[in-house]
Computed example of a mutant assay.
Amino acid sequence: MPLKSLLQLLLLAALWGGSFLFMRIAAPVIGPAVMIELRLFLAALFLLLIARLLRRHLQAGQHWKHFCMLGWFNTALPFLLLGFAAQTLSASLLSILNATAPIWGNLLISLRYRKPLTIKTLCGLSAGITGVGLILGFDPVLVQEGSTVAIIAVLAAALCYGIASCYAQGADHVEPFTNAHGSMWAATFLLLPLLPFFPAQASGDPQVIGAVLLLGIFCTGCAYLLYFRLIADVGASSAITVVFLVPAFGVLWGHLFLDEQIGWHTIVGASIVLCGVALVTNFNPLALLRKRRPTDV
């Protein structure tokens, strides 16, 4: 992987890792639904501006069903679940549990296409479950009221990402940027009817306002653009390795800015989870660093 792409990958991981920090700051104050609706709307506006600059047409009339499906399972519902959980769980825990998404995705794809699970995949699933169990078993968050529901919400969000990836396997091909732009607008409108069911309050706190703006524009809008740039430059299989770096930044930002403690169980459990993800996704770090030879196709 070229140095430029590697730096972009680190920046993307830092942005997506920062999203858990900003959700943790804003969700307890203004409520998860309003926070996520603002996040989606800001990101959609940002992508609309980029689309105008690039002269990209959305073709919503042709792909609206696809955008709604992708927008609900890949954006609106998982974002809402994560926002709900952010009222209780730490940014570190949110980022680690969310990293189980590739495990869910590969499991669902195997079930949908009736592909038998390999020994490596089964070992990866077992490692993921073991890592999550280790983290939760020693984390003091379990004594907090509502923590069990919050943990289930994060794992359900990861499952949603798995459903979205499974759906995308058999969906009609749509250009990646158009996918991001269209699904972001679809998610924005799909979430609107749910707002009355979640208590919310206004806040003039500059920290909360800043967190929402950074969450929408940078951690969502800019991050999507960066992700698709990586896909174009190094391919989807290399770009998706960002999932291994996001928890590291989630834990780091939580420790630096929210004074979240990093216990041995966090480090060991997260490592086991990521090993499980690597097994399930056939991730090979050496392949990324291998220098491409002229004879390579």
Score class of each variant (00 low, 15 high):
Cys160Leu: 04
Cys166Asn: 14
Val174Leu: 13
Trp185Ile: 13
Ala187Asn: 05
Gln207Asp: 12
Pro176Leu: 04
Val174Trp: 05
Leu194Ser: 13
Leu190Phe: 09
Ala168Glu: 15
Gly216Gln: 02
Gln207Ile: 10
Ala153Met: 10
Ala157Pro: 01
Gly216Leu: 14
Gly182Glu: 04
Phe218Asn: 00
Ala200Met: 15
Phe177Asn: 10
Thr178Phe: 01
Val154Lys: 00
Phe189Gly: 14
Asn179His: 10
Pro196Phe: 00
Ala168His: 06
Tyr161Gln: 01
Asn179Leu: 14
Pro206Phe: 09
Pro206Lys: 14
Phe218Ser: 03
Gln201Ile: 11
Pro193His: 09
Leu155Lys: 08
Leu214Gly: 15
Leu191Gly: 07
Leu195His: 13
Thr178Gly: 09
Gln201Cys: 12
Gly204Cys: 06
Thr188Ile: 05
Met184Glu: 12
Thr178Val: 13
Ala202Met: 03
Gly221Ile: 01
Gly221Tyr: 11
Cys166Lys: 05
Thr188Ser: 15
Ser165Trp: 10
Leu215Lys: 05
Trp185Tyr: 06
Ala211Pro: 01
Cys219Gln: 05
Leu155Tyr: 06
Thr188Val: 08
Ala187Phe: 08
Thr220Arg: 07
Ser183Asn: 03
Ser183Phe: 09
Ile209Gln: 01
Leu214His: 01
Gln201Met: 08
Phe218Glu: 06
Ala164Asp: 00
Val154Trp: 02
Ser165Gln: 15
His173Val: 02
Leu213Phe: 11
Ser183Leu: 09
Ala186Thr: 05
Cys160Lys: 00
Pro176Val: 04
Leu213Ile: 08
Thr178Ala: 09
Ala186Asn: 02
Ser165His: 10
Thr188Cys: 11
Gly182Lys: 01
Ala164Val: 00
Ala156Arg: 02
Cys222Met: 15
Leu195Ala: 14
Gly182Trp: 04
Leu190Thr: 09
Phe218His: 07
Ala153Asp: 01
Thr178Ile: 14
Gln207Thr: 14
Asp172Glu: 15
Leu192Glu: 07
Ala171Asp: 15
Pro199Gly: 06
Phe197Asp: 10
Asp172Tyr: 10
Asp172Thr: 12
Cys219His: 01
Asp205His: 12
Asp172Trp: 04
Ala180Thr: 10
Met184Asp: 06
Leu192Pro: 05
